[in-house]
Amino acid sequence: MHLKAEQVEVLNEVSSLNQLYDFIDAFALRAGLADDARRTVSVVVEELFANTVSYGYPTGSPDQIILRLSLTGDKIEICLTDHGIPFDTAASTATDFEGQSTEDRRVGGLGLFLVHQLSETVSSHHHNGTNFTQIVVSRSKTDMSG
């Protein structure tokens, strides 16, 4: 099944997450995504967007962030486009949170760690002041333990 890419454009503020959730829910409904896949997409988008908004705009400059979702076969592609400080999401994590003790645990970085663990591929690149972050997640994830 190929669902034409759908996108939404929101302000770079954390409250825009409400709009993104509505957009994801509507996309999932039209694409016939199972709950597992919808939840994975939601978690990935939330982490990426929250991270971008929190660290990408130290001077508070307004921006429009675009989220695009598309479904091709068994793959869901998530693409986030922003104009904040470039951040190399693809290379952002090597932390083994499962190996940490309770006392040593730090939550910082956990969001991007989750993104990597829940995704098949994570890539990011920058061009002319625009950052593109592309994530591919599986639509039918029966084993996420890898």
Binding site: T102, R105, L114
Partner: peptide, 17 residues
């Protein structure tokens, strides 16, 4: 927890905490 929540708890190491 549902399967998705359980998976996030497991991945993040929270099942040990």
């Amino acid at each position: 927890p549902n399967d998705s929540v359980m998976e996030v708890l497991r991945i993040s190491g929270f099942l040990k905490i």
